[in-house]
């Protein structure tokens, strides 16, 4: 959460450079620059090809966050300041509104693996959370087929508890039934490779072990639409290979995969389409090679 806040306050910091578009205007067509290698003429588009079923439609999406505790240190926790603000009837400076996603539209189809790239604070994680239906849109809408899920269960786990308990808790948090939990339990322990440490509290784990267990738990469930937020860069080299293999499997069983990663090599290898987000807007959307080349240049 702290990282997120930090990331978001960076967005806030960048905002003056962006032309003011706080009020979404539905009549004006989107001004996003979208480049595609071979823009297919609209008439030729295959209408009823089965693989052409849309799975996620994002329609002029705006996300506005409220961030608390973003005040500078001099303003914070000072009773006199708080009282003056109250007298002057000012809002609390610690509360800031961050316009993290500003009018994003795209359609994803069954079988797509979409990489999302962009600098820190460009709204990647926020966009993913909005697609997952975890952040309410300020304007616009996200339409989905089935329930998209975020790959990540970290927030439900408790450091003081044993790995054993955390596996059960994490599985239930993802919505598994007791029989599914029993079925997956051994698989999770084996995959994470933490062996007898499963009896010890997670606070005693090394950071690598913790990351392995978290990845093993969160990848134990299959999804229609899967959103992966930088889950790959965990653990040692051997585990990395294992987890990349697991991601490939998940991709095959899931309808559509969204992948946020800073490692562009991973995106180039696994995705068939890349969306480049810049300051909350789509700067480019299309073939991985083209977009990544432009991204590396810019």
């Amino acid at each position: 959460m702290a990282e997120l806040t930090k990331e978001l306050s960076q967005v806030k910091g960048q905002e003056p450079a962006v032309p003011d578009e706080a009020v979404p205007n539905k009549d004006v067509p989107n001004k996003d620059v979208r480049v595609h290698p071979n823009p297919a003429p609209a008439g030729k588009r295959p209408l009823d090809v089965p693989t052409g079923t849309p799975t996620v439609i994002v329609d002029d999406l705006h996300i506005v966050y409220r961030v608390y505790g973003a005040a500078s240190d001099s303003e914070k926790g000072n009773a006199v300041n708080a009282f003056t603000r109250l007298l002057k009837r000012q809002g609390r400076p610690e509360m800031k509104e961050v316009h993290a996603v500003k009018g994003v539209s795209f359609v994803s189809y069954h079988g797509d693996a979409i990489g999302v790239v962009g600098r820190n604070g460009s709204g990647k994680s926020t966009l993913l959370r909005a697609i997952a239906g975890l952040l309410p849109p300020h304007a616009g809408a996200v339409y989905t087929d089935g329930q998209p899920s975020l790959l990540g269960v970290n927030a439900a786990l408790m450091r003081e508890l044993t790995g054993e308990r955390n596996i059960v808790l994490g599985c239930y948090a993802m919505g598994m039934t007791p029989s599914e939990v029993r079925e997956k339990y051994q698989e999770i322990v084996d995959f994470s490779g933490i062996d007898e440490f499963v009896q010890l509290p997670m606070s005693t784990y090394s950071s690598g072990m913790g990351a392995r267990l978290r990845f093993a738990i969160s990848s134990a469930k299959t999804h229609d639409v899967l959103l992966i937020d930088e889950a790959l860069a965990t653990g040692d080299r051997e585990f990395r290979k294992k987890s990349e293999e697991r991601i490939r499997q998940i991709r095959e069983s899931a309808g559509t995969v969204f992948l946020v990663a800073h490692d562009l090599r991973v995106i180039e290898e696994t995705c068939n389409r890349v969306i480049w987000l810049h300051k909350g807007k789509i700067k480019m959307d299309g073939d991985p090679k083209e977009v990544l080349a432009a991204y590396n240049k810019g």
């Binding site: 067509p29 595609h36 297919a40 003429p41 609209a42 588009r45 795209f106 189809y109 797509d112 959307d285």
Partner: peptide
């Protein structure tokens, strides 16, 4: 890979030209 093309085409047809 015709899916992404159709995807973008559809998005463009839908979102941008307003059809």
């Amino acid at each position: 890979m015709s899916q992404p093309e159709s995807a973008v085409a559809d998005a463009q047809a839908g979102g941008r030209s307003g059809q």
